[in-house]
Simulated assay, not measured.
Amino acid sequence: MIIKHLFLCFFLIGWSVSAFSQEVIQLYPGKAPGSENWNWTEKETNPFPNNRMLYNVSEPVLLHYPAPKDKANGTSIIVAPGGAFHILSIDNEGIRVAEWLNSLGIEAFVLKYRLVKSETDNPFATLIPLMNNKDKLDSINAPVVDLAKNDGIVAMKYVRSNAAKLGIDPGKIGFMGFSAGGTVTMSVMLSAAEEWKPDFIAPIYLYKKAVLGKDMPKKETPIFIAVATDDGLGLLAHSIELYQEWVAAGQPSELHAFEKGDHGFGFSPKGTTSDM
């Protein structure tokens, strides 16, 4: 019930943030397995006000946002931004989420997972046409989805293995993701060994078709799902299907389908019900 109410509050109350220190945690000691030959450099673009996008991510890391010591409650959440595995919406679906979680006393880790290489400095020029051909997009993304899933599992291993050092509860580690980040969230949940599965999850407007793995958790694992009914990518059905599967498995489940908000609302105020 605590987790259920936590995520209900996520969408029902206002929030204020303050800047907390950030640590960059390398997930692998050297080149990440499976992309040893990648030699391109991560880049940033700013197509929207106050919403930076990263692309060409080749070195997966965690951005650690510690909870203020006077508020820390032992709970932690790994946050995976979305972007169709071509970009990362690092502000709207990552850093702002982490800062808000900090304000609730929750330790946050933003996952920068590996992405498809962009051949130009305008990743949207390649991505937007592909959004109308999801089969082709899935084919291009498939090898990277597997790598991103691995990055998520390694992130879980790091946080749980270092719980004592981080001052967090190893049994209260959640995983939250938006869109493609939701795909990563569910792939981690369904692919990781039982000891590395998250304790609770929050896939937000996830793309379910690309999810990897089939191993449902053996322990009780609450899920909080949110999506806009008018999702422009047609992903409402993906959230409903996931909700039904979790209910059928006897797991604590909650689904919020907002009337309006389109796809990718994240933490952006849009004047729609998703602002709640």
Rank of each mutant, 00 (worst) to 15 (best):
E194C: 06
A226S: 13
L130V: 00
D199R: 04
D199L: 04
W196F: 06
K172N: 13
D169L: 03
A228C: 08
F224Y: 14
A164C: 07
K165M: 12
G174D: 12
M131C: 08
S161E: 04
P203G: 04
L166W: 02
P198G: 00
T185Y: 02
I128W: 13
A226R: 01
M186N: 07
S161I: 00
P222H: 15
D151R: 01
G152Y: 05
S191A: 09
A164E: 09
T229C: 07
A192F: 00
T183L: 00
V159Y: 10
K165D: 10
S187I: 02
V227W: 03
E119M: 12
M131T: 13
A202T: 06
N133I: 08
G232T: 08
D215F: 00
L212C: 00
L212K: 03
A180W: 13
A164K: 10
T229Q: 12
G167I: 01
I225G: 12
K214D: 05
G213A: 03
I204E: 01
M216D: 05
A180D: 15
E220K: 15
L190F: 02
P222Y: 15
I128H: 14
W196Y: 10
K117E: 15
L233N: 11
R160T: 02
F175T: 08
A210R: 04
P123I: 00
F175N: 12
L233I: 03
D151A: 01
N162I: 04
F200I: 02
G213T: 01
D215A: 02
S161D: 03
M189L: 11
D135Q: 10
S161L: 04
A210S: 10
I173W: 11
D135P: 12
L206Q: 12
I140L: 09
G167N: 06
K172R: 14
D146S: 15
A226W: 04
I225W: 11
L233V: 02
L147F: 05
G171Y: 13
P123K: 01
K172G: 09
P170L: 01
T221L: 15
P143T: 13
M216N: 09
V144W: 14
M186R: 02
Y158W: 04
L233Q: 13
I201V: 13
A142Q: 14
M176Y: 09
N162E: 06
L130T: 00
N162M: 09
K165V: 05
